[in-house]
Design a protein around this nucleic acid. Structure first.
Length: 552
DNA sequence: GGCCATAGCGCG
DNA sequence: AAAGCGCGCTATGGCC
């Protein structure tokens, strides 16, 4: 059973029961207190809630105590369907989908994004000149019905995407346990005491001084790549860039100082005291997750950099007293995904046990694990590793064939899809123009080489897309399965973090063992739902720790 | 003063 | 020995 829902302007809303195909099965119900009505219906019937956008509606419901089990997010679903239909650039919001359905002018997604980001006081209805709640509900019902007709084989992906959106809101509400005093201690240990005003920390100032001295005392801002390049050139060592791996090859007294400076300066700029002030409150870090924010289906975040938390700061992620963190991350996820996707028997055998690269090395690379890993990564990401690829192709023809077919499709301008059907963007107009037949009487002599280069670039993208996006499918279904198995409520285990191939649950110490089992069961369920009958295993390393830093 | 591209690093 | 995919975020520096 499904229930379509919209809010009105003063805390109430409208509901209407739907069949699976979207046909209304009951009257429109007007309720005065939407969270109360949703919570009540959830207890009684556990329906799949159909609404415009989880990110807009669910935070208010959740804050008022109305946690729900399942939903159908019209905006996220529209994005998946449009991509699958090759209609990448079209706006995907509910108002846009509704307008398309009715042949009205289609509002741009940017308008809604601006509303959400900057002006919470404005109701979307007002800005977009949307009609009253009754008409909105009719629109929700109509768009949902149309999406169910377009759904095809994308049902599992749509359900998982919607469940992920619920989890994102719940994780933002729960927050990641974060100890500001530990964070401050880490910063102080590495950078010196917190400076007053806008001054640079002592350690950075001292390093900058030593770097200047190493170049003969000329003034130099180590944060400026251009100035650093000029300094090296003046010292007789012209460099192509100031990247760390370039600097490491250079024999100059400034190099170790610069490397140390870059690392600490980045920590200070991106995750320093300012970040702590802005993002941590009440012992919790609350990022804003953006489900489906990456073309491959991975999540993104808006502010806070939650998906790039430096390892040095994971000491500050500490469970509450009496609680622990269950940190579970998938081992070698992408090569296992390739094995399952391609059905390659040899690679599946290597992926049936613990260390895939070690098994691969024993099987085909004379026991050299590093070479095996290099070869497989190159297959998935598109590197040129010559001899190794020949070995890989001979021993694992189906796996190599799978990614090479994806690369050829991409080079030809075609679309590729993840296991569950998430579809890559089509080539841009510029790409088509640059790779199309040379036009004009006097074609650019470099155009051919350029066309081949950008075609190969897209081949690398689609080669990787099939693997990365299918790994994201698996991780998303895992997240949904973990979420469904955990008891709801602030007293029990809570999902608090999700990062590409890793989930974290914050739970009372006594629940840790059960949570670890839940996560393992969820991984197995995801394997079955996403890949069906495969010998490939997707082991999750689950660690029960007090501090995130102790998980690996 | 704001806008934008670029360089570079963090994470997976 | 080997090289490549996806992001977010910050500082610099040129431009208006």
């Amino acid at each position: 059973m499904r229930v379509a829902v919209v809010t009105d302007a003063d805390g109430g809303g409208l509901l209407r029961a739907l069949a699976e195909d979207g046909t209304p099965t009951g009257p429109v119900e007007r309720v005065g207190d939407l969270p109360v009505a949703v919570a009540e219906r959830e207890r009684a019937a556990r329906p799949r809630w159909v609404w415009a956008a989880t990110a807009d509606l669910y935070p208010r419901l959740l804050a008022a105590g109305a946690r729900v089990d399942r939903c159908h997010d019209l905006a996220l679903t529209e994005g998946i369907l449009l991509a699958a239909e090759g209609r990448w650039g079209e706006p995907r919001s509910f108002p846009a989908a509704w307008a398309r359905l009715e042949g009205r002018p289609v509002p741009d997604d940017a308008v809604r994004a601006a509303v959400r980001a900057g002006q919470p006081a404005l109701f979307d209805h007002d800005l977009l000149a949307l009609p009253d709640p009754a008409e909105l509900l009719a629109g929700v019902v109509a768009v949902h019905g149309e999406q169910q007709r377009r759904l095809g084989g994308l049902g599992l992906l749509v359900a998982a995407e919607s469940a992920g959106a619920l989890a994102a809101v719940e994780m933002a509400a729960a927050g990641l346990p974060w100890r500001p005093e530990v964070h401050d201690a880490v910063l102080t240990e590495l950078l010196g005491p917190r400076p007053r005003g806008g001054a640079a920390p002592l350690v950075l100032q001292e390093l900058a001084g030593k770097i200047e001295a190493a170049f003969g005392g000329q003034p130099l801002n180590p944060d400026s790549p251009a100035q650093v390049l000029r300094a090296f050139a003046a010292a007789g060592t012209p460099l192509p860039s100031t990247r760390s791996h370039v600097l490491r090859e250079v024999d100059h007294p400034a190099v170790p100082l610069l490397l140390a400076y870059k690392e600490l300066s980045r920590l200070h700029a991106a995750y320093g005291w300012t970040w702590l002030d802005v993002w941590v409150a009440g012992g919790r870090f609350r990022p804003e997750y953006v489900p489906g924010g990456v073309v491959s289906g991975r999540w993104a975040t808006r502010g806070g950099g939650a998906l790039q938390i430096p390892h040095a700061l994971r000491r500050a992620v500490v469970a509450d007293p009496g609680w622990v963190l269950v940190v579970a991350d998938a081992s070698q996820l992408e090569p296992r995904v390739l094995a399952a996707l391609s059905g390659d028997d040899g690679l599946a055998r290597a992926a049936a046990g613990g260390d895939l690269y070690a098994a691969l090395a024993a099987d085909a690379f004379g026991g050299d694990r590093a070479r095996a890993k290099t070869a497989l990564l190159a297959a998935m990401y598109g590197g040129d590793v010559g001899q190794l690829m020949i070995v890989l192709r001979r021993r694992f023809p189906a796996a190599v064939g799978y990614v090479e077919a994806a690369a050829r499709t991409g080079e030809a301008g075609g679309l590729v899809r993840s296991r569950l059907g998430r579809t890559c963007p089509p080539p841009s107009a510029g790409w088509l123009a640059a790779t199309g037949p040379a036009a004009g009487p006097d074609p650019d002599p470099d155009a051919g080489a350029r066309a081949r280069r950008i075609a190969r670039d897209r081949g690398r993208f689609t080669r990787n897309f099939v693997v990365q996006a299918s790994a994201a499918d698996w991780a998303l279904v895992l997240l949904a399965a973990v979420r469904r198995r955990l008891a709801a409520g602030p007293a029990g285990p809570q999902l608090v973090f999700f990062q590409h191939d890793e989930v974290m649950v914050h739970c009372p110490k006594a629940d840790a063992e059960r949570v670890a089992e839940v996560v393992a069961e969820a991984a197995e369920e995801s394997r079955r739902l996403v890949f069906g009958d495969t010998a490939v295993r997707f082991p999750l390393a689950a660690a029960v720790v007090d501090r995130y830093a102790d998980a690996k």
